[in-house]
Design a protein around this nucleic acid. Structure first.
Length: 312
DNA sequence: TTTGATGT
């Protein structure tokens, strides 16, 4: 049962990605990304993968007989001199992000769009703004403008500037380099990815609410020895990671209160002029690749449409 | 229109 389900997912995900590339030379390499055995070796979803149980004790998977009666943790002593930390969450005026210190870019950025938010407001213009380091992030892990200078990559917004027009402050925060990732300029950031962003704003104008989650992917690829490797460039003194792909997951709530889900993956490469629909990828594929779970508070059965298909 | 880089 499970095996059949998983193979269906793999087939459909490859088909979805394949369509996007039928005109390109790199079909084989992209196919490898999604044929990765990380999808094949599926495990049933766990409802509780937390290390902390309901009594707020730390779960210890293998207890000795003597310790079984009382579950304890030495956490207090262990972290006495400091915790390496994952204080990665940032809330800005109109978007939130989770920062990945290792890649010097965000793992995900979350936005809520409405018709009002994407309307033009006098005085809120990107020409007044500059890309800035995010000083809330430690200098060791912070991307700088110098990292991007001469790299050949654009400083690509994750939360798009034009999605946050209600105030200059809101828009200025999208220029923090924590919200930026290295993107191929011509053919990607300025073209196909920009088309996707414009499409999202068009949806925001026509619907009650749009929730958008955007982030980078670092996908494995099969190399000459037949093994899978994740390979990506790093730029500048701070080694800002250049993602292999980007994802964008949308939840659209219309005026009737119906929900639609759309999930996209685009490779960080110059792309031919193709329909956005060709980049729709099953949500599960993105969740597995990114290590994230999106919009979990909406039961799947609530979606009337998923990736352009009416749900039964 | 919106996405950028680069040079003065």
């Amino acid at each position: 049962m499970l095996i059949r389900h998983v193979s269906t997912v793999i087939t459909s995900c490859c088909a979805g990605v394949y369509i996007g590339y039928k005109y390109k030379e790199n079909v084989a390499s992209v196919k490898h990304y999604f044929l990765s055995n990380i999808y094949a070796k599926s495990a049933p979803p766990s409802t509780n993968d937390s290390l902390v149980n309901s009594e707020n004790n730390v779960n210890i998977p293998f207890q000795s007989e003597s310790s079984k009666s009382k579950v304890v943790s030495n956490a207090g002593q262990i972290v006495k001199y400091g915790f390496p930390s994952t204080d990665n969450l940032r809330s800005y005026e109109d978007f939130m992000l989770s920062y990945d210190r290792r890649t010097r870019t965000a793992s995900w950025v979350l936005e809520h769009l409405t018709p009002e938010k994407v309307n033009r407001v006098d005085g809120v213009e990107r020409s007044k703004l500059k890309f800035l380091e995010d000083e809330s992030i430690h200098g060791y892990h912070r991307a700088t403008n110098k990292d991007y200078l001469g790299s050949g990559y654009d400083r690509g917004h994750l939360a798009a500037a034009a999605n946050h027009r209600q105030s200059l402050n809101a828009m200025s925060q999208t220029f923090l380099l924590s919200n930026i990732a290295p993107q191929v300029g011509a053919g990607f950031n300025r073209d196909s990815w920009n088309s996707l962003e414009k499409y999202v704003r068009a949806l925001a104008r026509k619907n009650k609410n749009v929730y958008v989650c955007t982030g980078p992917l670092f996908l494995p690829r099969k190399e000459a020895d037949g093994k899978l490797y994740v390979r990506y460039e790093v730029i500048g003194e701070n080694h800002v990671a250049v993602p292999t792909h980007f994802f964008k997951v949308l939840v659209v709530e219309n005026s009737q209160g119906q929900f639609e889900l759309q999930s996209y993956v685009m490779p960080n490469q110059p792309l031919p002029e193709v329909r956005l629909q060709n980049y729709l990828v099953p949500l599960e594929v993105i969740e597995r690749a990114a290590g994230l779970l999106f919009f979990q508070n909406i039961p799947k059965k609530m979606f009337t449409k998923i990736n352009a298909r009416q749900t039964p």
